[in-house]
Design a protein around this nucleic acid. Sequence first.
RNA 1: GGGAGAAUGCCCGAGUGGCUAAAGGGGGCGGACUGUAAAUCCGUUGACGACGUCUACGAUGGUUCGAAACCAUCUUCUCCCA
Length: 373
Amino acid sequence: MSEFRYELIKECKDTGARLGKIHTKRGVINTPIFMPVGTQATVKSLSSEDLVEMDANVILGNTYHLYLRPGQEIMDKAGGIHKFMNWNRPVLTDSGGFQVFSLNDLRKITEEGVEFISHLDGSRHFMTPEKAIDMQNSIGADIIMCFDECAPAGADYEYTKKSMEMTTRWARRCKDAHKRPEDQALFGIVQGGMFADLRAQSVQELTDIGFPGYSIGGLSVGEPKDVMYRMLDATTPLLPKDKPRYLMGVGSLDALFEGTIRGIDMFDCVLQSRIARNGTAFTSHGKVVVRNATYKEDFTPVDPECDCFVCRNYTRAYIRHLIKTNEILGARLLTYHNLYFTLVTMKKIRQAIMDDNLLAYKEAFFEKFGIAE
RNA sequence: GGGAGAAUGCCCGAGUGGCUAAAGGGGGCGGACUGUAAAUCCGUUGACGACGUCUACGAUGGUUCGAAACCAUCUUCUCCCA
């Protein structure tokens, strides 16, 4: 029997926010949670020890990228991603569905699956729902995703409906192909673009199939934020309360609050780690572009209110210097801080739900943080 | 002492009569970044109140309708022969 289970601890009185626990073989995940993204079995620039130290609980890996490198055989021989990267906490893998979207010019979609042209060497690969699951069985993540088509924001109704219905058929194939349901929770992915009725249809069909958790995909793909929030409003109330909801790829600070308020339990985002590498920090007082000349002689911490090891020991001036000189330590320090800051914010959000003052906390947060980035 | 060559915008470096305020790269400055094709990408980078003017390609003086480009002299630098 699977140990995977969602426990709803408390529902917010004023909003749709939920405080919960996801029980997995590798430990308990307190939700709502932010999951750092480690596409190629590494959160870029950080070690697994760093992630433990900052108290990250779940991290992501990516099926498509790990399938290309190091490849399925190595993942098998390594005994799965946990051993491979020395990380014994939960891992969630995306199926490669996002690459159907992001590698737009390098793939062809058919009912059977997706033909990718490798961005690495131009070689052709045919990814199917079955293969995506098989690969995820080899990677061995605790939570895995159905292979889906993530349609672009501009897709019209007709295309979006067909795409969503195919994603549903793929979801069934994924469930059928899954060989380790006892220790890998397979999530279905809700699609339906920017159309509320299609979102509802997607939820209905996926819940009919039945999954231990539900992801909401196809958002934050170029649409305005209010549209995304409207789609969440049209989706989460329809999802079963006893299963976790995962909003895929979303994680700007405002979206973490707004998503939580709309009943999302899990978030992941590359934004924190990517902008870190590009010289920007999220702080209590908003976005700080450490790279900018303003901070050349700023010998204060990245975020004076943060107690991460970066903020306790290093200055903006130093990190700016590292970024300007293209030293890898700069990327590492900012990545560490950005993720730490986000994880702490999520911890405070959980506490606020517990204390029945989520809306007040949100208001206080953005009063300092400023307008959402 | 003799001979050859070079001097370009913050730096390197194209450019041998008008289309050159001057390619390209670097550096500087700024912006973007949301299930990672990203330590990436984009913009900008002589001055001044704008498709206008001014100052600019070592210096000075010429040739020409017009010069960063041609000529003369000077200055500095590099290389070769003694």
